[in-house]
């Protein structure tokens, strides 16, 4: 019985990195959005965008049809 242990490590690693990335980005965006200093606003918006892109990228990776997988 051959078990692909590497696959499990992959799942944990990917889930960990992606979820924490999304949460950190979003949380930072929230934190920065709260301030009054002028530089904060655009950075906050940019972070929201990064968050959305990361999520879309994740979905893209899942769809075999989109990248000829």
């Amino acid at each position: 019985m051959t078990i692909d242990w590497l696959a499990f490590v992959e799942v944990v690693a990917v889930a960990l990195v992606s979820a924490c990335f999304i949460v950190t980005t979003f949380a930072l965006a929230l934190r920065l959005g709260d301030g009054t200093a002028p530089w904060r606003r655009p950075v906050s918006v940019a972070l929201y965008a990064v968050c959305a892109l990361a999520a879309l990228f994740g979905v893209y990776l899942i769809i075999p049809a989109l990248h000829g997988g």
């Binding site: 499990f8 960990l16 924490c20 949460v23 949380a27 930072l28 934190r31």
Partner: peptide, 30 residues
């Protein structure tokens, strides 16, 4: 194996993510 590992993974990841969310933001932002 996924049946056992997946919820544990999700739990650990969720725990970390929650800590991060609370550390990085202040109450009124949440």
């Amino acid at each position: 194996v996924p049946a056992v590992l997946a919820p544990i993974t999700a739990g650990a990841v969720s725990y970390l993510a929650t800590r991060i969310a609370y550390k990085v933001t202040r109450k009124r932002e949440r």
